[in-house]
């Protein structure tokens, strides 16, 4: 009996893993396959898993008639700008929390962490009115500015820097380097791995974000990919293959980013998850 179990256990394990793999990857693979099918083929019974003939016509339509290049540009620009700016701002604050002593530091930091339970949606209505006052509704800045500082980002940088000895910084201070210089030419290079991690998080978060861009961007020429895609669904819900091509183009950039840099990404989740 025991031997039987010992033989069956790995089999059962691999069986479950294979089932998991099938369920996890099928939607993504079907999305890709359907995007390459001639119009109408994805709506046939029984469903086809493989295009009869491969066509790129839907991708061509997206770029020539539906302005997809524009949305791709908007998404890249917004995610890139938010990432660069927020890396500076969050790393400065995380550095201050990790390596400086000042009164009220720990209490301030803990209050910020406690604020993580506040859902962002609560702030959205007044934020909209505020940005309207500044004339930032329906501009790129309306999306960029609220993303420039994040509690999670500050937390991640702080956790990382806590593990780095302060003696190096003190030595630089002895040599008379200014505080900003120490941050710029010592702390930032030291933080490189965590900056890559936080950079991926921020880029993906901004790229994938839906609700806030949906609210702020009303002019279709400013739409990000997710907003454009949701909008496209209204007119083209029957064009399964076209919608799948749009989904592929939305998902592919962040997926490639993840596959290439997954080491950093996963390290970041572990750092954020373990010490939170």
């Amino acid at each position: 009996m025991n031997r039987l179990i010992r033989c069956l256990l790995p089999l059962l394990g691999y069986g479950l893993l294979a089932l998991g793999l099938l369920l996890t990857l099928t939607p993504l693979l079907w999305m890709l396959m359907a995007s390459l099918m001639p119009a109408g083929e994805a709506s046939s019974y029984p469903p086809r898993l493989w295009p009869g003939t491969i066509t790129f016509e839907h991708y061509a339509v997206l770029f020539t008639r539906l302005d997809l290049a524009r949305y791709l540009f908007n998404s890249t620009l917004l995610a890139g700008t938010v990432t660069v700016i927020s890396l500076f701002i969050n790393s400065m604050a995380g550095y201050a929390f990790a390596k400086f002593h000042f009164r009220g530091r720990d209490r301030l930091f803990q209050s910020l962490l406690a604020a993580l339970v506040i859902p962002a949606q609560v702030a959205m209505l007044p934020l909209f009115l505020l940005l309207k006052q500044f004339g930032l509704i329906n501009t790129y800045w309306g999306v960029i500015i609220p993303g420039m500082a994040s509690i999670f980002g500050i937390f991640l940088i702080r956790q990382y820097l806590l593990a780095i000895p302060g003696s190096l910084l003190d030595a630089a201070r002895m040599d008379g380097a200014s505080e900003f210089r120490i941050y710029w030419s010592l702390v930032l290079p030291l933080c490189r791995p965590i900056l890559v991690t936080l950079g991926i998080f921020t880029f993906m978060g901004t790229w994938n974000d839906f609700m806030w861009p949906l609210i702020v961007l009303t002019d279709s020429s400013l739409y990000t990919l997710p907003v454009a895609l949701a909008n496209l669904l209204g007119e083209h819900v029957q064009d399964t293959e076209l919608m799948m091509a749009g989904s592929v183009l939305t998902v592919l950039p962040v997926m490639l980013l993840f596959v290439v840099l997954q080491r950093y990404y996963i390290a970041g989740i572990m750092l954020g998850g373990m010490k939170g």
């Binding site: 998991g20 996890t24 990857l25 799948m244 998902v251 980013l257 993840f258």
Partner: peptide
């Protein structure tokens, strides 16, 4: 990595996929 892939996808895009 395979199990993690859906996490990095764009919610709106995969919601569209699941609709179909």
């Amino acid at each position: 990595t395979a199990f993690f892939l859906p996490v990095v996808t764009t919610l709106v895009a995969v919601a569209v996929v699941w609709r179909y």
